[in-house]
Design a protein around this nucleic acid. Structure first.
Length: 574
RNA sequence: CGGGGCGUGGCUCAGCCUGGUAGAGCGUUCGGUUCGGGACCGAAAGGUCGGAGGUUCAAAUCCUCUCGCCCCGACCA
């Protein structure tokens, strides 16, 4: 490929509306252009990178015996109604009607479609296990698309689904994916972490997320550098220092707290209590049901955790008037002592605590001396709080750190959710009909591209890992109109190409500075500069983008050398 | 959905408060000089000022509505 013929609309300045580094550089480097909010056109450079990523994905998926499909993005409502997700997905699903008025949607993921195929075609345990995948466009009407290609409304996903006879089989399929995913991200050059995650509305028993630490990320990951524990804060737990309780009372004692409405105010109030000796009562509505969440005064509720704890899809804080109607007091004076008509979900940190202070469900009154297990009817104990950096690791003596990360992949043990709701069953060896045990596994393709940019860039532009760079090598003649330089550059280009190197020749009639700047910005890992002075000594320069180092190479050996360097760089990513 | 911001040549932005001939830099085209890190000189093309309505002799500028985009929050397999 000659640069002159390639469409690479680089920009001298950063786009005004970009915030994330990957957004700025992908736009500036001529990789992507926005069509509308959360929808991007992939220009030739991005397409080259994405194809390299999907090639790697295909190789690794095929290597675990997965089979590629290509399923419709346009789906009938009926399949989604069967699984129950037509309603669950709410406004996040793009919906439309055809000319006859039939309801359709654009697929957000493909559990339903694959399961529909499975239930019609998989009949016997002899046909299992199966791993099916596709690389397809997914549509999600995100409330707030952002950060360029990181959070969008239309994107490419590799999604696979495993079909097994039993949970042992599922465990194997899950582990195969886990291993394949690690190879995929390694080969793409990403530094990543595998963390425990909430299974959320997908249902299922276990799930791992593949995360790339980055400021542009939207997930918070708690991790332990010492033992390797890592989990999304929607799931993470921590070890807390024990808190001393007071001597206790035989029964809770009501006391007046005029005007006291916050945990903080009660700390300094005469006769009040330290935050960690208070119970925070948070009233929320889960799937339409009023529920009390109890936490230590200085802890924060994690919405995902409480949703997971009760298996709810929908969460919202309760309105002040519905709280008053239910408990007879306003926020600031709430408590769970004596509450029996509503579910009370208590955070593990409250287990065994005594001498606690909490609202009395009467405005301007609190209770002290509350013994949680004696005085409160707890419906369910669960981890509800968001862990914080500096707290103890739950698995070892070290402390946790909390970092922002980009989710580039997610693998779930789905279990029976879809096979039961949609009736995908097989016969076992002894003739029993059992639902297929499923797993679901996703990879965000554009997110890999963006995460790589977030990870590898400098003031001059992108520094792609060789495996996913739009080109591996650029040959830059300082002056292409000069006969000698032109001949040398074209020869090197031709021979590199013949040697299997993905190379581009910058044949533009531009000043050298322009060509260097563009090559740096676009992020081509290696550059061969053919300049007038060195050429007279039969030498060229070899520049490594990531380290910004230069070395002189003999014209005679440059092709062999560069081919080897590229091969080694790729091999390192295996 | 709540809060904030922005829509002016291809890009980055000024002009708006205080209404009166639409600007700059970059990019593009042509001519010339240059040629190892986004050159220089000269000339030129290119804009219904997001859209609709209103106020006014006169609207990019003031008012109303509307659409789009960005950021924070909410939300998010």
């Amino acid at each position: 490929m000659y640069w002159h013929n390639l469409f690479v609309p680089t920009l001298r300045e950063h786009p005004a509306d970009a915030e994330a580094v990957s957004h700025k550089l992908l736009v500036r480097g001529g990789f992507i252009r926005q069509l509308t909010a959360g929808v991007y056109s992939m220009l030739p450079l991005a397409q080259r990178t994405l194809l390299k990523i999907t090639d790697i994905v295909r190789e690794e998926m095929n290597a675990i015996g997965a089979q590629e499909f290509y399923l419709p993005a346009l789906n009938p409502a009926s399949v989604w109604r069967e699984s129950g997700r037509w309603d669950v997905m709410g406004d996040n699903m793009f919906r439309l009607k055809d000319r006859k008025g039939a309801e359709l949607c654009l697929g957000m993921t493909h559990e339903e479609i694959f399961t529909a195929i499975a239930r019609n075609e998989l009949r016997s345990y002899k046909q299992l296990p199966q791993i099916w995948y596709q690389i397809q466009t997914k549509f999600r009407d995100e409330p707030r698309p952002k950060s360029g290609v990181l959070r969008v409304r239309q994107f490419t996903m590799k999604d696979s689904y495993s079909f097994d006879l039993d949970t042992d089989g599922l465990d194997k399929s899950f582990d195969l994916h886990d291993a394949a995913y690690r190879r995929i991200y390694s080969r793409c050059g990403l530094r990543f972490a595998v963390v425990e995650a909430s299974s959320g509305a997908m249902g299922g028993s276990a799930s791992n997320e593949f995360m790339v630490a980055s400021e542009a990320g939207e997930d918070w990951i708690a991790s332990c550098a010492s033992c390797g524990y890592a989990a999304n804060v929607e799931k993470a737990v921590s070890r807390l220092e024990p808190v001393p309780d007071g001597s206790g009372l035989d029964a809770p004692e009501k006391f007046a707290t005029p005007g006291i409405r916050t945990i903080e105010a009660l700390v300094t109030f005469e006769g009040g209590a330290a935050a960690h000796n208070q119970i925070k009562t948070y009233v929320c509505v889960l799937d339409g049901k009023l529920t009390l969440a109890l936490l230590r005064g200085d802890h924060e509720l994690n919405e995902t955790k409480i949703k997971d704890a009760v298996g709810a899809n929908d969460f919202r804080p309760a309105q002040p008037d519905e709280i008053f109607e239910a408990l007879g007091a306003h926020p600031g004076s709430l408590g769970a002592v004596g509450v029996t008509t509503y579910p009370v979900i208590a955070d593990e940190a409250l287990r065994g605590r005594t001498s606690m202070t909490t609202g009395a469900n009467e405005n301007d009154f609190h209770l002290r001396g509350v013994n949680v297990e004696r005085d409160i009817k707890v419906t369910k104990w669960a981890s509800l709080r968001t862990v914080k950096a500096g707290e103890g690791c739950p698995r070892c003596d070290a402390t946790l750190e909390v970092n922002k990360s980009i989710e580039v992949g997610h693998i779930f043990k789905l279990g029976l959710k879809y096979s039961v709701s949609m009736g995908a069953n097989v016969l076992t060896q002894d003739g029993r009909e059992v639902p297929i045990v499923m797993g679901s596994y996703g990879i965000g393709v554009e997110r890999i591209m963006a995460a790589a940019v977030e990870l590898y860039h400098d003031a001059d532009g992108i520094c792609w890992p060789v495996s996913i760079a739009p080109f591996e090598v650029v040959v830059t003649p300082v002056n292409f109109t000069d006969e000698a330089m032109r001949t040398a550059a074209e020869t090197i280009y031709r021979e590199l190409k013949a040697a299997g190197v993905d190379v581009i020749l910058d044949n533009r009639d531009e000043r050298p500075g322009v060509k260097f700047k563009d090559a740096d910005l676009v992020g081509i890992p290696f550059r061969i500069v053919v300049g007038p002075k060195k050429l007279k000594e039969n030498k060229v320069e070899f520049f490594t983008r990531s380290t910004k180092t230069n070395e002189d190479l003999d014209l005679a050996s440059v092709v062999a050398h560069v081919r080897n360097v590229v091969a080694e760089a790729k091999a390192k990513l295996r």
